[in-house]
Each structure stands twice: as structure tokens, then as C-alpha cells.
């Protein structure tokens, strides 16, 4: 089991920000992209293999295999990339245990509302994040290392994003 695990939601999965900033900043040794589309599309996994820095050990797996992949790893620092909030919830249902969830990039769609320039969430996604929060998990928006918004629950039981 890896020592330190960062679970990050990013619709663009492995891209410039992750390659240039997060991988060196977190000193990532092992990167697991858990995405059903990427895992079943050989061209997509080839692109991620091409894009990842040579020092990082990469796997591209379906969400249902994520817990097994993590359990088999002994890397000191692992970064897990997931496409959206529902994939994170599905990873939990499939026995992956984590207590902090970071939202990096969640793109705009008609049913999502803007939280920050890089993160848009639907009602259902916020409900899922609130559930994770109520179960003792921490939810943070952190697109860049210098930015951090925490999901809090206000006195009415509504979600509130705070800099704290």
C-alpha cells in the first residue's frame, strides 16, 4: 500500500498543469489514471504514456480496478486522476479508501454551475461531495498549488466553499 495518496478530479486527466506543476510539486512516483474510456482506448493510453515524465510509473485502469491497483503499489507518493465526481464515488464503492478529494478541473456543461474558473458542478455532484464530507472526508478545490477552497456545510446544511 502506498504511503501518500492524492486523489484528484480532472476531466483532462494528464495534461500540462499536472505534468509541469503537480507531478514535480507532489514528487509523484506513481500515477494512476482511473478512467473507463482511457483504459479501453489504446490510443488514449498511448498518449498518456507519451506525455508522462520518465521518472513516473504510470498505469491506466478502469475505475473498478483502481483499489486493486493501489493495494498492489508500494510507491511512496501516488497521484490518482479521475474524470469526475461520480467516478470518485464509484472508486469508493469499489473499495478504494481515501479521506481527501481534490477538484482540479471540472469543465462547464449546461447542468453545472460555476464554482471557480476551472470547476463547475451540478446539483447531483454537489450532493455526492456533501455525502463524502458528511462521512468525514475533506473536499478541496485546488487547481493550482497556491489556491485552496474547502467544502464546508453551513448552518442550514447547505454547501459553502471557504478559504479558511
Amino acid at each position: 500500500m502506498a504511503d501518500s495518496i492524492h486523489v484528484r478530479i480532472d476531466n483532462r486527466l494528464l495534461h500540462g498543469q499536472v505534468v509541469q506543476y503537480w507531478i514535480p510539486f507532489l514528487e509523484v512516483e506513481r500515477l494512476i489514471i482511473a478512467d473507463d474510456e482511457a483504459a479501453t482506448n489504446p490510443a488514449m493510453s498511448a498518449v498518456y504514456r507519451m506525455a508522462v515524465p520518465g521518472t513516473v510509473n504510470l498505469s491506466v485502469v478502469p475505475v473498478s480496478d483502481l483499489a486493486r491497483e493501489v493495494a498492489a503499489s508500494n510507491a511512496s507518493t501516488t497521484l490518482i486522476l479521475l474524470s469526475d465526481v461520480f467516478d470518485a464515488a464509484r472508486a469508493q464503492t469499489n473499495d478504494l479508501s481515501f479521506d481527501r478529494l481534490v477538484l482540479g478541473n471540472v469543465h462547464a456543461t449546461p447542468d453545472r454551475k460555476r464554482i471557480t474558473d476551472s470547476v463547475y458542478l451540478s446539483r447531483e455532484e454537489i450532493d455526492s461531495l456533501m455525502q463524502f464530507r458528511l462521512n468525514g472526508g475533506r473536499v478541496e478545490i485546488q487547481t493550482f498549488p497556491g489556491e485552496r477552497l474547502h467544502l464546508e456545510i453551513d448552518d442550514n446544511g447547505d454547501p459553502k466553499w471557504s478559504k479558511r
Binding site: H15, G16, Q20, A51
Partner: peptide, 13 residues
């Protein structure tokens, strides 16, 4: 603009 960035990865596909 950048190897491994989204424009690069999207084009590679």
C-alpha cells in the same frame, strides 16, 4: 505549445 499539455495530447489522438 507544450509537450504533454492538452493541445498536444488532443492532437496526438
Amino acid at each position: 505549445d507544450l509537450a504533454g499539455g492538452t493541445p498536444c495530447n488532443t492532437t496526438a489522438l
